[in-house]
Every structure is written in structure tokens, then in C-alpha cells.
């Protein structure tokens, strides 16, 4: 990760300008800004680090240091179909790890990765608040309650 903090006279690209509008440029806003950037672009790119660095007048290293502390921030582009397997306690005791093994095997990737063709994105989440429906898998923001390994396989096939 670079640590180039030379200020440039060129203004931030429009999409970042919009994004930064609600902020004052204080260090305490860093995490919220990271959250907004990730919501907008799906991940924190090197370009994002550079823009945040200019806006907050913090080094890119410092920003990356904070961002990488929190497992929710990612630094590579997500795959198209998002698959989140809940690894919370309730889901674990209802067989969540079997589900994730089967999904991971099928896609040939581990948690936190996108499939090589970029079509799938595989993440773990810790409790989405639907423990009564455990185990749950979230596919493109759609919650699949009481998920079974076999139904997940069918679902993946339908997205393939």
C-alpha cells in the first residue's frame, strides 16, 4: 500500500465530492467515511484510500491501518452474486459450518473471496438478527431461512 500524501491541486472526482459533502474533514469521521465508500463502491480501492487521505489530511498508511483493523472493510472488488453465510452462534449450532463448507467447496473459494470469474462473492457474517430462523444464508440481500445444504446447492445452480 502506498503512502503518497502529496497534496494535489486537482479536486476530488465528482463521486467522491458528493460522498464527502456531509463531512467536515475531521479524523473522527474516518470510520463513517470508510463505511460510506464501501457502501458506494463495494470495496475500498487504492483510489478511495488516496481520496480519503486528501480529504482528511491523514496518510494512506494510517487510513489503511484503521480500515484493515475492522474485518468488514475489504480491499478488492466483490463478485456479482453476493453470498453471505451466517456464522453466528445460533447458526453454528444449527449446522452453519456444514453449509459454508459445502458452498465454499462448490464455488472453490474461501470466505472473503470472490470467485475467479467474478460471478460469486462469498462472505461470512456474524448474526444478522434472524437467529430464530437459523441457519441463515443471505443471497443478494435476500434472506434464506432454515437453509439446507441441498437447497443452497440448487440456489447456486440457479445463479450459475
Amino acid at each position: 500500500m502506498g503512502c503518497d500524501t502529496r497534496t494535489s491541486t486537482s479536486a476530488a472526482p465528482a463521486e467522491y465530492r458528493d460522498l464527502f459533502q456531509e463531512f467536515k474533514g475531521q479524523e473522527g469521521e474516518l470510520i463513517t467515511i470508510l463505511v460510506r465508500v464501501q457502501e458506494r463502491f463495494g470495496y475500498i480501492s487504492e483510489e478511495s484510500l488516496k481520496q480519503i487521505s486528501r480529504f482528511l489530511k491523514l496518510s494512506e498508511n494510517q487510513i489503511f491501518g484503521v480500515a484493515s483493523f475492522f474485518s468488514k472493510f475489504r480491499f478488492d472488488a466483490p463478485g456479482t452474486t453476493s453470498i453471505k453465510v451466517c456464522m453466528g452462534t445460533a447458526c453454528h449450532v444449527h449446522g452453519g459450518s456444514q453449509l459454508s463448507d459445502a458452498v465454499g467447496w462448490r464455488l472453490g473459494i474461501n470466505f472473503g473471496q470472490a470467485s475467479r470469474d467474478g460471478r460469486f462473492d462469498f462472505q461470512r457474517v456474524n448474526c444478522i438478527g434472524a437467529c430464530a430462523l437459523a441457519p441463515v444464508v443471505v443471497v443478494n440481500e435476500q434472506v434464506h431461512a432454515r437453509a439446507m445444504v441441498t437447497s443452497m446447492q440448487e440456489l447456486l445452480e440457479s445463479h450459475e
Binding site: G28, I31, V66, F69, F70, K72, F73
Partner: peptide, 24 residues
């Protein structure tokens, strides 16, 4: 204030660090 979702940030001093924009 957005929390980064780290378990340790529930601890008071880590929470404060994270609000101040630092590692939790």
C-alpha cells in the same frame, strides 16, 4: 457513529478509540 463491527469495540476504551477515528 458507525461502528466497524469489531467485537472489541464494545469495550469502552476501544469504542472511544474507534469514535476518534483510530484502530479500535
Amino acid at each position: 457513529k458507525d461502528g466497524g463491527g469489531a467485537f472489541v469495540c464494545g469495550e469502552e476504551t476501544a469504542l472511544i478509540a474507534s469514535i476518534e477515528g483510530r484502530r479500535g
